[in-house]
Amino acid sequence: MNSTRAPSPTDELELVLALRAGDEDAFTDLVNRYEAAMLQIALAYVPSRAIAEEVVQEAWLGVLHGIERFEQRSQLKTWLMRIVLNRAKRRGSEEARTIPFSVIQPAWNDSGPSVEPGRFRGPSNAWPGHWVSPPSSWSGVPEARLLSGEMFEQVRRALGELPTRQREVITLRDVLGYPAHEVCNVLAISETNQRVLLHRARSRVRAAVERYLEQ
């Protein structure tokens, strides 16, 4: 997980000082640590991989121009993530103006149930609220199928269809593996809100994976 690779405060201070001094190794070090995470964050807001890469480039330029003013009070990682988040958001809303609204933001029922109600027995049944068609175990699904390019495509599509807030949270939590408190910090949301958004997002993605595996 990326979060475990975060440098200690002393490392961070050294990196910042080296970067200010124009040390290319310090820059490469920083890029190696954070570029994958920055790309994932950018992908959460913009419609294509190419645009996400542009956003990451812009963000690094912002980092270089801002490093002189970076204050040690905030964590380096949080600062970097905020920079890419802001650029990606701005770019995302610019793109949204050129693409029909419905493509970007489908009319999801944002507070709907986690699982289609039709999967459960109705109130007149002897076992109301219990599965009609129970989920099946995926333990027999070969790893090659589970982690196939096609699966990733389906999951990406499911992420793309989520409301933005849900996509932000699930990207940071599950794609990037950040702990809950860091996600709350970066997105400035409460623990409860974070959990609700994560729950809805995971439920949608699980349903998409199920549709793909059981089609």
Binding site: A36, L39, S137, V155, R202
Partner: peptide, 21 residues
């Protein structure tokens, strides 16, 4: 099975981050 599916889903999501620039 549902919980196990959810754990698998989280694992698949985690693999997306291996994409790099």
């Amino acid at each position: 099975a549902y919980i196990e599916q959810m754990r698998t889903t989280i694992r698949v999501l985690g693999k997306l981050s291996e994409e790099s620039v």
